[in-house]
Amino acid sequence: MSAEMPEPPGRRFDAEIIRQPLRLLEIIGCVIVIGVFGYYLRAALSLPAPFNDMDIGAGGFPKLVAVATLVATVLVALTAIVKSLLRLPYTLVALKRPVMVLLAMVALVVQALLFTRIGALATTGLFALLTMLICGERRLPHLIASPVLLVGFIYLVFVVAFGVRLP
């Protein structure tokens, strides 16, 4: 998947695989984390003050968590920036089949939306088939057998054995 390797002559781009230096991903990730925790800190600051002076209040602990995490995140980001400025050797992260992964995420969200509407078992079977297709399965017997077995298993365990009321 990845290896320590010297700066490659040129980045490879194709639809099947994207390679990015880990530190670039780290910087992007840190920006997101900083954004989320900035919002979290703002929400923590707006929490009401404690009822008495003995308690640190509802916001005390979250404030501490927010500040500590922000500091750690900034440090991670700085390390990544310094590393790239110094042109140190870096790790490549491969994002394979990005289109398929995105598709899978969308499929998962749609599955959740449909879950209560068309019923748990029907959605599960349908999306099991879809997940297998996205994952690259093309053999017809597998594509039919697996979802059927899965739905049967879920029905037996959850509905029959445990009496869970599925939509």
């Binding site: 599955q111 959605t123 099991a128 997940t131 297998m132 994952c135 899965l150």
Partner: peptide
């Protein structure tokens, strides 16, 4: 692919 589908289904 089958494992992925099974795990996702059971998770839901």
């Amino acid at each position: 692919p089958a494992i992925a589908a099974i795990v996702a289904g059971i998770c839901f």
